[in-house]
């Protein structure tokens, strides 16, 4: 099986869908002539031309709202946000219009739009550019949100997102764009709403999404080699819908859980997972659920401190050892 980068996997998904459905268009800042601020759309303009691959001015509210309007008439826009942090200037479109039009029309309209882009900290760009809004999105009925953490999932989830008839927001990570992994050439999809056990284990469940999955895998290796603890790593992949079954099965097996995310703790994704576990697997828990989230302040710039602000393997290991 070929090994490709996370970036290439996303692009391959878009290429497949652009070829499969003539109503798919890619719109965003610098996606065409500049070849993508993070090169995710590199070469697409040359291959598909300016009708399908469209450079937008810096007007997120305008072009994302435009994409929502076009999707009501059957276009399938894949809108790139250079950073998910820029979503907030388009929040009315992203939250109010995309999520509510179907409901307010009594189900007469659907909005098959994809909004994608990186949503991660850890790159020295300060508070305005380091947001991880998957928890906000997941709080909004009508929207779906996925956070692929491997090249395989990036391709499979992106294809599912583009084919979905509801708005699907894809949170990527600049830190993972160069990560390589095995990705089949064929036309597979990863269904939205299915978690994936990235490492089997019997002593503890590390439950994470996005870049935190990689942190958990690193922590699991250390826990195994240095402490004899076998951690299971559950990659949520999709936040809403949420694969509760996989989470609960893992906790029933291990009886312990650490929830890891780059989100801030208050009302972060882990809050919901924690509730899910206590309500569905209360009797299986041998210890309180632990959480490792970003330290609760705006993203700091100073590079050494920024590394401390986001939960790294040492924090996960510490949290794990507290309950094992």
């Amino acid at each position: 099986m070929p090994e490709i980068t996370y970036r290439q996997a996303l692009k391959d998904a878009m290429i497949d869908e652009l070829e499969r459905d003539e109503n798919v268009v890619i719109i965003g800042e610098e996606v065409a002539q500049y070849n993508g601020a993070y090169k995710v759309t590199e070469g697409l303009l040359k291959r598909f031309g300016p009708k399908r691959i469209v450079d937008a001015p810096i007007s997120e509210a305008g072009f994302i709202g435009m994409g929502i309007g076009a999707s009501m008439l059957g276009i399938r826009p894949v809108m790139e946000l250079m950073f998910w942090s820029f979503a907030y200037v388009a929040w009315d479109q992203i939250i109010n219009n995309a999520a509510s039009v179907r409901y307010m029309s009594g189900g007469l309209i659907n909005v098959p739009i994809v909004i994608r882009g990186p949503a991660n900290g850890g790159t020295g760009v300060g508070a305005t550019h380091s947001h991880t809004p998957e928890n906000f999105i997941a709080n909004t009925p009508g929207l779906k949100v996925v956070c692929p953490a491997s090249p395989y999932d990036a391709k499979g989830l992106m294809k599912s997102a583009i084919r979905d008839n509801d708005p699907v927001y894809v949170m990527e990570s600049t830190i993972m764009y160069n990560d390589k992994g095995e990705v089949p050439d064929d036309d597979y999809v990863v269904p939205i709403g299915q978690a994936d056990v990235k490492r089997e284990g019997s002593d503890l469940s590390l439950i994470a999404h996005g870049p935190s999955v990689l942190v958990c895998l690193e922590a699991a290796n250390v826990l195994s080699s240095e402490h004899g603890i076998e951690a299971e790593v559950v990659d949520l992949r999709s936040i809403r819908p949420l694969d509760e079954e996989t989470i609960i099965n893992s906790v029933k097996k291990t009886n312990r859980a650490v929830l890891v995310e780059e989100n801030k703790p208050f009302c972060g994704v882990g809050s919901q997972i924690s509730h899910t576990i206590q309500s569905q697997a209360f009797d299986y828990l041998d210890a309180p659920i632990q959480r490792a989230s970003a330290l609760d302040a705006p993203a700091i710039y100073s590079p050494p401190l920024e590394k401390k602000q986001l939960p790294k393997a040492d924090v996960v290991i510490k949290k794990a050892l507290e309950i094992c």
Binding site: G62, N96, L108
Partner: peptide, 28 residues
């Protein structure tokens, strides 16, 4: 709303429908 009559709302946020209008035109 009544999409069968090409009537796409009915939008409550002041100005919020204006990008959607551009989107309908974009699709056409």
């Amino acid at each position: 709303f009544d999409p069968s009559k090409r009537y796409w709302g009915g939008h409550g946020i002041v100005g919020g429908q204006t990008p959607l209008g551009a989107g309908l035109a974009y699709a056409l």
